[in-house]
Design a protein around this nucleic acid. Structure first.
Length: 616
DNA sequence: AAAAAAC
């Protein structure tokens, strides 16, 4: 990145055509051969088909119907007849859902060093905007510099993930970016590497002093996520002169201030504490070269947007255009994209995987469970896990509930019933929150009951099972929640308890399951159809003509762009919706068109391992 | 109607 040249001047026309090499995620590159390669998806399929029975929770509308399709790709099989026996708790007791063996079958988080074999067959990549820098295929090719490369190796990152391959060159070129990539696919590194590289290039490090002048600011919606990003960034900046600091509420401010006084290049923060520090004149944003928002859609939603606007537009931060701005998330609803463009200048829109989609590393199940039966049903699930003795460090269970009170209540109820559970939510003091998370991570209490405080970004290895005890109202929240498992190439399981009051979510849930090649229960389909007749059912988010297109909201609203007071910030973006697959890669180079997308990366084999951590 | 985020 060439901040020293001036951020806005550093954009350049791509010199070479994008190297569209076949992509295989890092975890798939270990000792691959055709036989092993095909083993995982097969077990996934078998899993879905064979367990249609033991799962078997269906509404009366399904009764004796076989489940539709299967969990894998294609619809060649039909599950054997699932019996609708959702009132028959007796039978549940006799035939508890044997989750432990299923987790083994799925090779869920068996071992950090183990690799799972499978394929991302179709990872659509869409890039739009003007003068798009081409993606890179290796870290070496990106030339991040010796010290950073050393740290990348230390972290056992061998090959960039798709989001990294595309986002890092864009960020290095100094461009603003709105990036969407699936949970657990390596977003943290995708914005940390370019930031650290740019600071090293700038070769002007912060000095100790009463007021801190960070060069880069990374914002996070929760304290725990801020901590996690901070820890990651520190690893990446190890033995460089780049200093990283963190600022978040609920912890004594003096320690954080003390650290700031030593000099800060990269500040990771939650909004409230940051504003506090700025108002105390302990931090100045006047030197900020790069602003990165993790979970950017959350940061710009109703609850957070005023604070972000204050920090970005009403403090001493350099204005849009004279700083670089990077937005990252797994989800990016249309209306939030529109809002986000206020903070961006001539930005590039990048999506790896469909926006808001989940990864197919997560096997998703939806069961109809009336509110009254939820606890009993949960008990049966957990008993199934316990029975096989694998409910330890290698199979953590994360249970999401709707309310803070509900989290406490469920924690208590589980504890009383002999399940080692602990709760985390925003009414606990920070120390309790951190203790709960630590206790969960260590496996000391392998069950964590959480509100949405834990739904985004947190990277906890060994989370094998995410249970949506209460489903969220927003499908995007669901995507983030289940994204706590199936990270960095590991597979995972997500179970949702769907009750009558989740009707509004049915349509979006069905669409998501279909996209992720998951089995859609017939009864859920019925709910979705009924719900779609009611105004407001689902979310009008996925539209657009082309198969993968319609994600960059600028494409859907060319007129608004022309009439928009900010239209100049769009540079030469012309609202075209060109779409290119591999066979058209050449035309990209020849014409310098402003967007391209790929439908498939194909497959590739190599021999590499990767260690999970801080992937979001 | 809920959750998160400063003291």
């Amino acid at each position: 990145m060439t901040w020293s040249d001036g951020v806005t001047e550093s954009t350049r026309r791509p010199q070479t055509r994008p190297t569209q090499l076949p992509y295989v995620p890092p975890h798939l590159r270990n000792n691959c051969n055709d036989g092993a390669f095909s083993s995982m998806p097969t077990s996934l399929n078998d899993y879905a088909v064979n367990n249609a029975n033991s799962y078997g929770f269906t509404s009366t509308t399904e009764s004796t119907q076989a489940p539709l399709g299967r969990g894998g790709r294609g619809y060649g099989h039909r599950g054997r007849g699932g019996r609708g026996r959702f009132h028959q708790t007796q039978e549940q007791e006799q035939e508890p859902y044997n989750i432990a063996s299923k987790l083994e079958e799925l090779e869920v988080n068996v071992d950090d060093e183990s690799t799972n074999f499978g394929a991302y067959e179709d990872i659509p990549v869409e890039v739009s905007g003007s003068e798009i820098p081409p993606p890179a295929s290796s870290f070496e090719e990106i030339e991040l510099g010796e010290s950073l490369n050393r740290n990348i190796k230390r972290c056992k990152y061998v090959k960039p993930t798709p989001i990294q391959r595309h986002a890092i060159p864009i960020a290095l070129a100094g461009r603003d970016l709105m990036a969407c990539a699936q949970t657990g696919s390596g977003k943290t590194a995708a914005f940390c590497f370019p930031i650290i590289h740019a600071i090293l290039e700038l070769n002007r490090f912060s000095k100790p002093g009463r007021v801190a002048f960070p060069l880069a600011l990374i914002l996070s919606p929760t304290r725990e996520l801020a901590c996690q990003i901070y820890e990651e960034a520190k690893k990446f900046a190890y033995q460089t002169r780049v200093r990283v600091a963190v600022a978040y509420g609920g912890a004594p401010i003096v320690h954080q201030l003390h650290n700031l006084e030593k000099g800060v290049d990269i500040l990771v923060a939650t909004p409230g504490r940051l504003v506090d520090m700025i108002e105390r004149a302990k931090v100045s944003l006047s030197m900020i070269r790069c602003l990165a928002l993790d979970e950017a859609d959350r940061m710009l939603d109703m609850g957070f947007e005023p604070q972000i606007r204050k920090i970005v537009q009403q403090m001493d931060m350099p204005p849009c255009g004279s700083r670089q701005t990077l937005f990252f998330s797994a989800t990016f609803p249309d209306e939030i994209q529109r809002l986000a463009s206020d903070f961006l200048s001539n930005y590039i829109f990048l999506s790896v995987g469909r926006v808001g989609s989940s990864t197919d590393l997560i096997a998703q199940r939806v069961e109809f469970v009336p509110n009254m039966d939820k606890r009993n049903h949960l008990m049966n699930l957990l008993r199934g896990q316990n029975a096989n003795g694998t409910h330890g460090k290698h199979a953590l269970t994360l249970i999401f509930v709707e309310t803070k009170r509900g989290a406490d209540a469920l924690e208590h109820w589980l504890s009383v019933n002999g399940f080692p559970a602990i709760a985390i939510h925003g009414d606990k003091v920070q120390m309790e929150r951190e203790r709960a998370l630590k206790s969960f991570k260590s496996g000391y209490t392998p069950i964590l009951v959480a509100t949405d405080v834990a739904s985004r970004g947190l990277d906890v290895p060994h989370v094998a099972h995410v249970i949506n005890f209460d489903l969220p109202k927003d499908i995007d929240d669901y995507v983030h929640r289940i994204g706590r498992t199936g990270r960095a190439g590991k597979s995972g399981l997500a179970t949702a308890f769907f009750s009558d009051q989740n009707m509004p979510l049915a349509k979006a849930l069905v669409e998501l399951l279909q996209e992720a090649n998951q089995e859609v229960p017939l009864w859920l389909n019925d709910y979705a159809k009924r719900a779609s007749n009611i105004v407001g059912g689902g979310r009008a988010r996925r539209f657009g003509g082309s198969k993968f297109g319609g994600y960059d909201f600028r494409r859907d609203a060319p007129y608004e762009i022309e009439n928009d007071p900010y239209s100049s910030t769009y540079g030469s973006f012309d609202g075209t919706t060109s779409s290119y697959d591999l066979s058209h890669a050449n035309s990209y180079a020849a014409t310098g068109v402003d967007s391209y997308s790929t439908g498939s990366y194909g497959h590739e084999f190599s021999h590499e391992t990767i260690v999970a951590s801080g992937w979001d």
